[in-house]
Design a protein around this nucleic acid. Structure first.
Lengths: 172, 172, 172, 172
DNA sequence: GATGAATGAGGGTTCATTCAT
DNA sequence: GATGAATGAACCCTCATTCAT
């Protein structure tokens, strides 16, 4: 069912008609509603594993990478990889639709602390300027830059994210 | 009528129901359709003046500002000022809805050349690195970072845009 | 203006949008309404000449044709020729739309007496059976058989009208 | 629901607003659309039973009636009985509206073969002239003569249909 | 628990008709 | 008189959501 929802999201965005999702899953619409009363519940469930994996990758990268800034850069890459392949997810996350508040919150709850930790480590190491942006802003900035990345081949979100991260750097 | 449409766009996004726009304007829906057969026509008309003003400011800034990079920075501020006060406009610009292709195109037609010129001047002056991003990407980057800026007081799009522009800088 | 309306009726039926008619005529819609307050007025005006010509042909045919039945047959041909070239007119004449009552009445007022006279003469001459149908019914029968004749090439209204008229004949 | 649609068709023609039909049936519009995605689907469903009954009556009459011409006459009566009680059906059948092509086709598919068989038998028996009209034309002729029969008490479709059938007769 | 039929709000669009200029 | 901009009723159709089976 989550798989079917994922496919539907890829094909038609996270606003995909409930019927389509149910049809893909081979269940009735009632079954979708039983398990996921709101759309946010469904979206969260679909992406939970990947969000969790992303969150868990943070500390690991910090331990493994040569420098904190390298860890941050790699983690940012992971996050972009995740978002860029989810048609409409980045947009939905920012959407002010009431139904998506929970989705927004879930992402922030899981990822802001991780982002904050990476940012803090790089700042402590003197690799990026202090005080420019916090974890929340960096996360949202990356998220925003990924909006529309899948639907427009001319647009290279990755390059812009790199520039954004470059903007944090402490000149050596 | 354009004013009313603008208000409706602020309140409900550029997808605001035609009926709402008509009601705000104190006209019938037919009147809207008469003047603006498609939604893109309406959206473009609403923002044309401001987009044009923004486009025209580019050369002027280049002539007046102390350095090309200053001109770029000020122009970026203007663009952000414009976007941040238009609830949902930034999002609509990126939207892949078929009806908005014309809107997207209008923005790009008017602003990409200006952005490109400013970027080129700053590059020629050695103030920013060459080849990182072109005018199109800078424009979209700024546009994307402004998405959701009005609806979330915690989110400071301006600060992120500054970081993005900083990321272009050639270290002195 | 009548010419334009006639063209519009041919192209889109007698329900053609008032705007189309006005546009074809190169006048404003207000002008149409000034001259023809209701659609029936317009339709009647468009076809008046032809209806009148048809009405006037009756007595002339009766005077000229070898027998009353020949006169009737020729007049029926004229009427069919008229109807078959007016897309949707026959249907509109029967339509129960309130606006078309006047149209219906106009046709009947002008043509029933003529039809009645021809029928009466042929009956008097012993060429057709008495009492089968009156002028009103013959007229409506012909009118009805012409419905849809223009839009369906497989349908040959003329042939059916001939059979109908043959059904009136007194076997020799 | 079919009953309600039938009533609505009687009251307002087969173009009756979907909402009206839904209201009469005491269901929501969605229910109508679920069962009958297009209007033709609905119209066909409403009349299917009666069309089928009419089609099936043909062979039975041919077997039972004293002569083929009697069988034809009785079948024609049945068909007229059916049409005359369906306000607007006859008109809709001829309507050139794209949505009604399927309806038209359904009637012809079911009834033309029956009509053709009756006509052929009567021709073979020497009771009617050969070559005047085929089954398709006879069917359409009857259909057309029934248009407007319910809404105008002055108009007697039955009598005209009798004259039409009389027109086919081979004089004895 | 699962199902999917039914509901009906909601949004788009067309055009007959009016009326100020 | 002529004009055509404005009005808004009337239709169409699509889902999100509920709930009896």
């Amino acid at each position: 069912m989550l798989e079917a929802a994922g496919e539907a999201f890829v094909a038609a965005g996270v606003d995909a008609p409930v019927r389509d999702i149910a049809a893909r899953a081979g269940v009735g619409v009632g079954t979708i509603y039983r398990h996921f009363p709101t759309r946010a519940d469904l979206v969260i469930a679909v992406y939970r594993h990947q969000v969790d994996a992303c969150a868990e990758a943070g500390p690991a990268l910090l331990a493994d990478a040569p420098t904190p800034h390298d860890a941050l850069a790699r983690w940012v890459d992971l996050f972009v990889d995740f978002l860029v392949t989810k048609h409409g997810l980045a947009a939905a996350m920012q959407g002010d639709g009431a139904g998506f508040a929970a989705l927004h919150a879930y992402f922030l709850d899981r990822l802001v602390p991780v982002c904050e930790a990476l940012l803090g480590a790089a700042t402590a190491a003197g690799q990026i300027r202090a005080g420019d942006v916090d974890g929340y802003h960096l996360l949202r900035g990356i998220g925003n830059l990924c909006i529309g990345a899948e639907s427009d081949p001319r647009y290279d979100a990755r390059r812009l994210v790199k520039v954004l991260v470059a903007g944090l750097r402490q000149p050596d």
